[in-house]
Each structure stands twice: as structure tokens, then as C-alpha cells.
């Protein structure tokens, strides 16, 4: 570990904040009742996309969008519990690894970074980014914008930012749809992250296009998401666990079986590791290595892509 001497120090996320100012900005919530009726503009149905392929899907998609909002509104406060249930508690380690491997923060002689954490929810990743920048790269200037479609999740994140004394100049929360990222200028972001968020997005290719749009040339797209387990016997066990145990646990722990049922199904429907790497490439990003890195037998994976220079 000669190369990353401080590699494990992001572990204690909530300690030692240098508190200067404690009020995170909550920027304009411009989309109307955020998260409730969040289906994006429908005008693309009439565009060149094959309508036949969209017919059945479209109905489901609009249903899905509002259902996603419902799910996350209903679990916002018990959110950590849910993540623990879904990942056997390993999600914290995955997130630590995710952030450590990205190594955010200013380098000697370089500039502070501008980080966008999409579907950032309660700020889990955003906080880790700031912690890592500060502890590993001694950087107190890099900023993170935590964007989510759901105002309830953002409110929870904002609360945590205040509680833990994060600098409001460095972290902000804003309602944004991953598909459009309306308020984010082109070529403005060094690092775009999305953690356990992409599978909830209705039109994933649109979200990837927007990621490409907002990234600076040379900027990095990084996604952490549940993925396909291999080898097959393990997959069978995991399917069994996820389809029967998780909703039951959801019922017991959070009193919310349906939301957990939805989450399990959304994981199952998400494309395979290679398929998603392909989608990243199709959006104009260059895959890193073979495109993804599997964690814990593929229960989750990390995909990275770089926006090319020209």
C-alpha cells in the first residue's frame, strides 16, 4: 500500500469535521412537487425512437417514475436500514472502496475538483467525497453537489450535513432529474458519481447522455450499483435471498414490504455488467479497463468511463 498510505482513513466518516459554517445550501427546488410526479417530458415519444418498442414500456415507465418517488419518500428516514438489508451490511464497505478508488480531491499543483453526485439521496457518497479529499489529499476546496429527484431524501441529507458540521461552501443539495440535469452547465464537472441510483432512473440512456454533457473533457463518470452475481449457484442463493428474505425484512424492519419488493425487482431488471458497460460506451464515454469492477461476487459492481478529450 505504499501508493495510498491513507487508504483506510475514510472509514470514520462522521468524525473530525472542520466546522466553519454549518448551514448547507438547499438550492432552488425548481421542478414542481418534487418527486411526486416526476415523469419527464413525454415529447420524446413522438421523436425518432421506435414507438412500437415504447408502447407498452411507456405506460410502465410513467408508473415507474412516480412509484420510485413513493418508494424513496417512504424509506428516506429508514434509508440506512434499507441499504443494510439489501447488501448484508456491506454497502458501507463498497462505498468506501468506491470513493477511495476514485481518489477525489486536489493534487499537488492542481485545481480543486467539482464533483456531482447524482441520485445522491441522503448524501452518503457526497460526505465520503469531502472526507476523502480532506484527509487523503488535504483539500478543503473541492465541492460536491448532491442532486436527487426526491426532496425528502435531500432534506434528510441536508439535516445530516448540518449535524456533522460539513462546510456549506463545499456541499450543496439540489433537486434534479438525472435524465436532464437541467441546471448543470455543459463541460463543468470533473467527477460524476451515481451510487445505487441509476437503476431507478426511468430512461437510463438519457441519464448517461446528460452525464456526458455535464462532464469536462477528461472528466470521469463512476457508477456503483447492484449487479449480476456469478457463479450460478451463488446467484441462485442470492435470488432466493433477495426475493423472499428482503421484502420480509422490509416488512419487519421498516414496515414497508412493497417498497422493498420494488427494490428487489429493480435490481433484477437492471442490465448485466457488460450490457451496462456497453450503454456507457454508447453515450460517448470511454470504458475504463474492461468497463467494470465486480465487488463481492458481483452483488455490486463499479463502472467507470472517461469523457474523451475531443
Amino acid at each position: 500500500m505504499a501508493t495510498r498510505p491513507l487508504s483506510r482513513c475514510v472509514f470514520s466518516a462522521a468524525s473530525s469535521k472542520h466546522l466553519r459554517s454549518v448551514v448547507p445550501r438547499v438550492a432552488a427546488f425548481h421542478s414542481t412537487p418534487v418527486g411526486l410526479n416526476s415523469s419527464p417530458p413525454k415529447d420524446d415519444q413522438s421523436s425518432s425512437e421506435p414507438v412500437t418498442h415504447f408502447g407498452f414500456q411507456t405506460v410502465k415507465e410513467s408508473l415507474k417514475a412516480s412509484k420510485v418517488a413513493e418508494v424513496f419518500s417512504s424509506v428516506a428516514s429508514s434509508y440506512d436500514t434499507m441499504n443494510d438489508v439489501m447488501s448484508f451490511g456491506i454497502h458501507r464497505l463498497w462505498k468506501d472502496h468506491f470513493v477511495r478508488s476514485l481518489d477525489p480531491g486536489r493534487r499537488p499543483g492542481g485545481q480543486p475538483m467539482s464533483i456531482l453526485d447524482v441520485a445522491g439521496g441522503t448524501g452518503d457518497i457526497a460526505f465520503r467525497m469531502l472526507d476523502h479529499s480532506e484527509k487523503v489529499n488535504s483539500d478543503r476546496e473541492t465541492t460536491v453537489l448532491c442532486a436527487d429527484i426526491n426532496a425528502d431524501m435531500l432534506k434528510e441529507g441536508e439535516k445530516r450535513a448540518i449535524q456533522n458540521g460539513y462546510d456549506s461552501n463545499r456541499i450543496s443539495f439540489r433537486a434534479e432529474n438525472a435524465e436532464t440535469l437541467e441546471s448543470i452547465p455543459d463541460n463543468s464537472i470533473d467527477l460524476y458519481t451515481i451510487s445505487f441510483g441509476i437503476r431507478n432512473v426511468t430512461r437510463i440512456p438519457m441519464a448517461l447522455k446528460s452525464a456526458h454533457r455535464v462532464l469536462k473533457p477528461g472528466g470521469v463518470f463512476a457508477c456503483l450499483e447492484f449487479s449480476k452475481v456469478s457463479p450460478a449457484p451463488l446467484d441462485a442463493i442470492y435470488q432466493q435471498y433477495s426475493f423472499s428474505v428482503i421484502p420480509l425484512m422490509g416488512q419487519l424492519v421498516a414496515g414497508d414490504r412493497d417498497s422493498y419488493q420494488y427494490l428487489v425487482e429493480s435490481i433484477k431488471r437492471f442490465p448485466s455488467q457488460t450490457e451496462f458497460a456497453r450503454m456507457i460506451k454508447d453515450a460517448g464515454l470511454v470504458n475504463v479497463g474492461k468497463g467494470y469492477e465486480e465487488l463481492t461476487f458481483g452483488v455490486a459492481s463499479i463502472w467507470k468511463g472517461v469523457k474523451p478529450l475531443d
Partner: peptide, 14 residues
């Protein structure tokens, strides 16, 4: 930086 990339671009190297 010399190659006109960003600091974060080193993520390109797995």
C-alpha cells in the same frame, strides 16, 4: 495534466 487531461482522469488507469 501534461497530456491535457484532468487530475481525475487518472481513473482511466484501472
Amino acid at each position: 495534466r501534461d497530456a491535457n487531461y484532468l487530475d481525475i482522469s487518472v481513473n482511466m488507469l484501472p
